[in-house]
Amino acid sequence: MKCEYCMGTLSLEDEYCPHCGQPNKHAKQHIKDMKRYQSEFENTRKYVYEKTGRYTDTTVRVIVIAVLIVMIMVTFLIGANSWSIRSSWRRASANRHYAKYSKIMDQYLAEEDYLSFNTFCNENYIRSYEEPYKEKYCLVIQIAGSYSTVQDALLYYCFLEDEDYIEQAVDRTVDALDYFYRYYLNQDDYYTDLYGESEIFEQAASVMEYNIEQMLVAYGNFTQEEAATLPALSKTKKAVLLEEKLEEKMQNE
């Protein structure tokens, strides 16, 4: 554009003519307009940034909340299913360590330590109906579990000192003995299709039956004959005999 005073060339941004120094009326308005536009632009940008920023902050927080909720649900689910998760994991571990564990189990069987055998199987999740233990140990794992219950009941029965608990001791012992004799020593049909080496089962069953009899003789005030006939008695007769013997023992003491 041209200066209206000296006709020199000047631009819209020049507030004064660079040739004659006179003020540029058009530039003033232009600069004023530019400042206004700049200010509006800055305000709009600030508004957009703020709005977007708030929106982004909110979105991020909502996403964090959603993730936390999912994590909480997963954690509670895992905790609630810890037994089955751990059980699966331990069973898989038992399968991997078959060679090592079976050596330990054979050692316990050789020492006739059926309680340790039972505890070892329980604590290491060795199940009688799962491979590879099923083939060799199924029956003996089952009977060891029952024998452990009988032992606990017998120890409670034989060393009972409080007469108020006679009935409880007798009931517990009768239930344990009845189950043991009925399912494992009388070859009940229920167990004919189970696996396991019959030789180790028969050896174990024989020793367990012997131990039970002798424990009743040594600590339960039974005679050898009474202990030997106990398996053949009905549940009611077992209860009567056990109660009689316990009361007799307590009176003698």
């Binding site: 909110t58 927080r61 936390l68 994590m71 909480i72 954690t75 905790g79 609630a80």
Partner: peptide, 26 residues
């Protein structure tokens, strides 16, 4: 939302403790 996040973090901590205790109990 910040308060909700803090509460959920506390609940998550509690859930983690619960899960760990359940595993240790076994």
């Amino acid at each position: 939302l910040d308060i909700v996040i803090m509460i959920l973090c506390l609940i998550l901590l509690f859930a983690l403790c619960f899960a760990i205790m359940q595993f240790r109990e076994d």
